[in-house]
């Protein structure tokens, strides 16, 4: 049991939550984007997490000890929101504009959750560090 590699568990989560935060930021930035290079309005991005081994040497750790990683980033492919606004440059013939299906409140909440999770993992890493320092003091 290596107390130093314990920090890998927490740091895997930091990476994953950062990626999630990026996706959320992208969503918030593009809340009103009606035109994208791929065509059509911006599609909401979300990340899917998966447990993954945190250490290279898996023989010495138990299988229940897992880090996390981003499995994939998916684009929302549901129908876009239709808003009636004939004066909009991207309005269709009947005056409807296709807007991204992004709920700002949802994204903000998600962002807070991601930030909180990030902080929790920072604490977990600090805890590992303190324990390692304490072990160093044995016999000093």
């Amino acid at each position: 049991m290596n107390i130093l590699s314990t920090m890998n568990i927490g740091s895997s989560a930091l990476s994953a939550q950062s990626t999630r935060l990026n996706a959320i930021s992208s969503n918030l930035a593009n809340v009103n984007t009606t035109e994208t290079p791929e065509g059509g309005p911006y599609r909401k991005k979300s990340v899917v997490f998966r447990s993954a081994p945190a250490f290279e040497n898996e023989l010495t750790t138990r299988e229940e000890i897992q880090g996390v990683r981003v499995d994939r980033i998916i684009s929302d492919d549901s129908d876009p929101k239709r808003v009636y606004d004939p004066s909009h440059p991207d309005a269709g013939e009947n005056g409807y504009v296709e807007m991204p299906n992004i709920n700002v409140v949802e994204e903000m909440t998600d962002m807070m959750t991601a930030a909180r999770a990030y902080e929790a993992n920072v604490t977990s890493i600090k805890s590992s560090q303190r324990m390692a320092m304490k072990a160093l003091e044995i016999g000093r």
């Binding site: 049991m1 927490g10 447990s51 996390v68 959750t113 999770a117 993992n121 977990s124 805890s127 324990m131």
Partner: peptide
């Protein structure tokens, strides 16, 4: 005791890291 507490720390850290992983249940 130190060995065991160290391992337990890893288990709890795993739970924290996977707090948002779908289908994960805490160990």
């Amino acid at each position: 005791v130190l060995d065991l507490r160290g391992e337990k720390h890893q288990v709890i850290a795993s739970n924290i890291a996977n707090a948002d992983t779908p289908g994960y249940s805490p160990a």
